[in-house]
Design a protein around this nucleic acid. Structure first.
Lengths: 188, 188
DNA sequence: CTTGAGATAGAACGTTCGGTCTACTTATGT
DNA sequence: ACATAAGTAGACCGAACGTTCTATCTCAAG
């Protein structure tokens, strides 16, 4: 008989952080995090050194998941690079339409974390680089003349979809962006 | 001999709020606002009822200025609707390149103000509607087939520029967006 | 000159903040 | 069985939060 041992406090903190920092922003209080995670105050400081450490780790884990999410979305779209890139925008349409979509958590974190030295910034910067590389690789396979610039443009469209999705949800921004993305893919 | 009377406390509070809420976010403390404005604590509550009232008024005034800024930018670009719309993106390039550009203050406010009932949200929603109308009017004058949809797309591009400008400043996002905007204007 | 409105200065309220610390309990491995 | 490590519970710290309050000052209108 195995002792019904669920996820440990570290895991529960990361999950609570993921949820609460998205819904309430990174300004969420330590008390609220501890209560949601059902974890002793001390455990937070043992595992993460403090609130900033937890937030950075929450962001890091989230970026890993989201990057894998990009890869999975493209994988499901087959081999054609064009189809794989456009699939990203189709998936974005679903994400933005989810009832509790609250915008891009990384942009929100960057705007909310006033201190430019906060460890969270390095995490989001890394993430954007990785996604850029992901897009650029597909554009190269597509034979695009300026894959780096085109990847910048696709990233800009993705951020625009997230922003519009958070502030003007009824305008179906992902569909708009998809059409513009097609134009980007068509060349330069 | 006129008594050298500068702007009153109300004006000083609005100016300090404009500056500090942009640089530090709407989470800025009341004490910091009072100190920057050189205003007595009481005056804030007399004039604005509280911090939330001040923030809403700061946002309201800022939207007025920004809307006028859009109009001025278009006015300077002459009569041709196409040139007037593209001028917006040229102006965006300058704004995003300013050394202390920190992203779109309205998106930042919407993401930071957790309470959906905060009066600031109504202000930003109004502003987006007004800008949308501004763009749509030009698109109508341009004879665009779907002016409302195209205005949505231009707004998406503008938000994308702001986001990319805040998070990936070296990628010249406004230039990228301008090219996509041309495509939007071209058609349908 | 007087009055009253508007501003300033600042104490104080209760709450919440992030972080530290002590004491007790639980689980694990030898 | 016992030792050790890890987790819980919660008091506590100083600081900052938004807000209310009293007291004093300034100045223009009556």
């Amino acid at each position: 008989m195995t002792t019904r041992t669920g996820p440990g406090p570290r895991e529960r903190l990361l999950e609570a952080g993921r949820e609460l920092t998205y819904r309430q922003g990174v300004g969420i209080g330590v008390d609220a995090l501890l209560k949601a995670a059902n974890v002793a105050r001390r455990s937070l400081y043992e595992h993460f050194g403090g609130k900033d450490g937890l937030i950075a780790e929450v962001l890091r884990r989230s970026t890993s998941e989201d990057e894998e999410h990009y890869r999975q979305t493209m994988r499901s779209a087959g081999d054609d690079p064009r189809a794989r890139l456009l699939a990203v925008f189709d998936r974005l349409a679903e994400i933005v339409d989810e009832p509790d979509f609250r915008g891009c958590r990384y942009l929100a974190a960057d705007l909310a974390l006033t201190d430019p030295g906060h460890p969270g910034h390095a995490v989001t910067r890394d993430y954007r680089e990785r996604v850029h590389r992901l897009l650029e690789d597909e554009l190269i396979r597509l034979g695009h003349a300026e894959p780096a610039v085109a990847a910048d443009q696709l990233l800009l469209l993705i951020d625009g979809v997230m922003a519009a999705g958070a502030t003007r949800p009824r305008t179906r921004p992902a569909a708009s962006a998809r059409r513009l993305a097609e134009h980007v893919l068509d060349g330069r």
